[in-house]
Each structure stands twice: as C-alpha cells, then as structure tokens.
Design a protein around this nucleic acid. Structure first.
Lengths: 109, 109
DNA sequence: AACTTATATAAGTATATACTTATATTAAAT
DNA sequence: ATTTAATATAAGTATATACTTATATAAGTT
C-alpha cells in the first residue's frame, strides 16, 4: 500500500499523531481510537497492521504488550514528494540560507 | 474528500507532478496520463474533477480549452501535518538557523 | 449550418478496503 | 493448571471509488 493511501485513513493518521508524541502500547492506542471513532479493537489492530506492513511503525514486544513507535522513512518520502511544490509557497532563500540548507542536507546523509 | 485521499491515487499524483512544472491544458494531461496509465479520457476528466473539488487545482477557460494550475493550499496543509514528525529527521537547528527560520516565518505572514 | 474538436458528465460495474463478529495466540495472574 | 488479559487474525459484508461506455455541451472549422 502506497504511503499516501496509508495516510488517507483518518484513524491511521490519528494513530501516527499519537506516536509522534512517543511510543504507545497497542492497548493505549485502542482506548484512544475507540473513544474518538467508536470502532472495535479488531479494527484498530488491523490499522496497526497496515501501519506496520507499510513501514510507518515498528513494534517492540514487552511480555504480552506490543509497544508501537513511529518510523520516519515513509513520512520522509511523503515530505520529499512535496519538495517539488515548496517553491510555490516558500519564499526564495537568501544566499546565506542556501548555504545553511546545503549544510543541513549534508549532515542528513 | 480529504487531501490525503486525493493524493492516494497515483494518477492524481502524476497530474499534480505535471502541474508542478506549470499549467497544462486538459488535453495535454489526458495525453500523458493515457500513455502512462492506459485509461480513458473520461477517467482522466473525473480525476481532474476530484482535484478541482478538493481545491488542489484551479481552471482557466480559454475558448474550448481548460487550463489547469496547481493550488497550494491543500499541499501546504499536508506539509503542515508533517510538521509534527520533522523533529524525527531534521537535525536540531543551530541558533543562527533558528533566527533565519523565524525571519522566514515572519515573511510568510 | 453541419462537422469536428475539446472537455465534462451520467450511469453502470468491479474491486479494494474498512468495518463487523468470532476465534486464535501468547503472557500474566490466581 | 485454569482463568483472565492483551493482542492479532480469519471470514464475511457493505461501501466507496476508479474505472468503463455512452452521451452532452460548447467552441472551432469548413
């Protein structure tokens, strides 16, 4: 499933918003999503599977608990796709800013 | 339709990629998409409608032609949603970079 | 005026997917 | 050892949507 399809679902976006604040156990995610969307545990678990399969999250097993964390790679890919449109809304960089951006890109690699 | 649902479709993403390079007539878009995806003119027109309805594009009428342009607002909204994850991959800003970012934000308003 | 070109819409269909209930799996607690 | 808790999976269903063909609309051309 393509990254944008994964993000197309509001429940999955909400789960990622939770994980943006730090790791969460499956049960904690289920509680929040059930409150906000009124769907079953099974449905939430299926969304978690989509997020795992598409690389948006990773899981750590802690006894009977599964602890989910966000993985940045697919999010970065989405961000990179947006690059081609940034010139439409970002003001032109000054020479100094260009230098800094260059340095930032280098550090990233 | 939510911005992420709109971007979930590969044909619509491709159309936006074309428009990122500048405005295109409906017919030009149809030609490219038919080559790459093998779908009918009607199907492309329906995707163009989704892009219009969701605010990703605007149209200018030129006689019998429709000239499409990209509109940035929904793309910016997607970019803004990603903000919450940027800290995961963007190196911490130096004081100087923070100053510049502040200025950039001010200019934007 | 009739024909052609450019584009959009209507109606119908197939498929993907977001749910449901029921059940499996494994760990923890009694 | 049973029972309970935490989570995942299986199977089935309903709905959204991405197509198709056919047709409409409006502008250009002859």
């Amino acid at each position: 499933m393509h990254a944008f399809d994964v993000l197309g679902d509001p429940v999955r976006r909400r789960i990622l918003e939770l994980l943006a604040k730090g790791e969460h156990r499956s049960g904690q995610i289920v509680t929040v999503i059930q409150n906000e969307f009124g769907i079953t545990q099974a449905a939430v678990s299926q969304h978690l599977r989509v997020l795992r399969d598409s690389g948006f999250t990773s899981v750590r097993i802690e006894g009977a608990r599964r602890v989910y964390s966000v993985e940045v790679q697919p999010l970065q890919a989405v961000d990179a796709w947006l690059d081609r449109f940034r010139s439409f809304w970002e003001p032109k960089l000054s020479a100094l800013e260009t230098e800094i951006a260059r340095g930032k890109r280098k550090r990233r690699r």
